[in-house]
Design a binder for these strands. Structure first.
Lengths: 219, 219
DNA sequence: ATGGCAATCCCCCGGGCGGGGGATTTTTGA
DNA sequence: TCAAAAATCCCCCGCCCGGGGGATTGCCAT
């Protein structure tokens, strides 16, 4: 439903031999991708790594042309892998695979040197096309601003502040004390938040905030 | 690091013909698993589904022996698929595949009729062995109680269900209608949740739930 | 400078929330 | 087998929440 929209992919200069490195902590995904892509003749060799460290090491030894990188990894996070590898080997194209696509996440990834961003829910043909495209120097990113630019509600700084404290269990009174304003003002902010997020109570507001990326999960 | 410890798998009665259904919203995982397992002779047929609904429909038409079920799915959550399918077809063995293994999650899954629980980071051999084992009636679960049982509050299945709906903005009344129980019972569950999560209101409960990983952020 | 928006403060009011009790039945696990 | 936990239902009650009105001060953009 929210698959990234693929840009038009230009004609390729034949089926080159692409050296591919897959970095994903899930063996299922790793071996699955390998099995899925291995049959394609455009790949010269495919290597896999189960962690950031392993991936970096693999770059030294294997010299890949393209890397498929999973962002969501438990211990070692994919972002650091992206930064490290891109800084050290700027010529390597990195195609980020992620489970949940946040607009902010896409932006971050783009800024940090990735050549593309794909949801894991894309089909094989799209994935193959994307790999070939980034190998050829294309940038593959979801068309972010277009479809759902309006669904990211613009909360004011004050409202965000109030929202954060709502998630900490503060009442309007307590929040008023913390922010140094009247509890009535707090209620006004809360009402505004409700309208902007299209919710009916504090619990739903907090939930939506997490889903929309307005609140972080890292505490 | 936290891979499930596999119990000893008994000798199989030859390589039976297993009808396998893969339920996962990520095409990469779906096609990957299919490609990875399809070569093995012990599978008679492999079907795939991209959602809970599709999976249920597939059970009717395809009659699988074993299901590989992804717990973390955006819109349709894997829990409901587990409940629905297990209630309707108790003879189908369901092997849950999950990204992050919480002790509470494992317990919940076990209670709701799954035959096994595996992290996506297991290798192909382990996965194959596990599928054959559950097909033969074995139970495959990680040795859970071990080290850190205390850091994740143990919510019951019902409590988690209530918690999810709290995040959707339902009142006690509405929640009672949805779950088919008295609003007074809902209030009891909510109180229990508050105590277990050490919070004072619904908003804080939802927030803590996200931080503790009891609620997912992906969609 | 006039309209729009954020931020502040105020009022009313009904209904639901949260905290405090307790009780029963079923399920689970030891 | 038997006790603990889960799941269900019920009562009371104070008070905060949520929705409905406004009003005032700034700031900014055209």
């Amino acid at each position: 439903m929210n698959d990234p929209v693929m840009p038009t992919i230009p004609a390729m200069s034949a089926s080159q031999s692409i050296r591919l490195l897959i970095i994903d902590d899930h063996a299922v995904v790793r071996e699955g991708l390998e099995a899925m892509l291995g049959v394609d003749p455009c790949f010269a060799d495919i290597a896999t790594a189960a962690s950031t460290d392993e991936g970096v090491q693999c770059c030294e030894e294997f010299h890949p042309d393209v890397i498929l990188l999973d962002l969501r990894m438990p211990e070692c996070d994919g972002f650091s892998a992206l930064e490290i590898i891109h800084r050290q080997w700027p010529e390597i194209r990195i195609l980020v695979l992620s489970a949940g696509a946040t607009a902010a996440e896409v932006k971050l990834v783009k800024r940090n040197g990735a050549s593309g961003y794909l949801s894991k829910s894309v089909d094989r043909a799209t994935l193959l096309a994307a790999i070939r495209a980034v190998a050829a120097g294309e940038m593959i990113f979801p068309r972010e601003p277009a479809p759902k630019a309006g669904d990211a509600p613009q909360l004011s700084a004050r409202e965000l502040e109030v929202l954060r404290h709502l998630g900490r269990g503060l009442s309007s009174q307590e929040l008023g004390v913390v922010l140094g304003i009247s509890p009535e003002t707090v209620k006004s902010h809360v009402k505004a938040i409700f309208h902007k997020l299209a919710v009916t109570d504090r619990a739903e507001a907090v939930s939506r905030a997490y889903e929309l990326g307005l609140l972080a999960v890292d505490r």
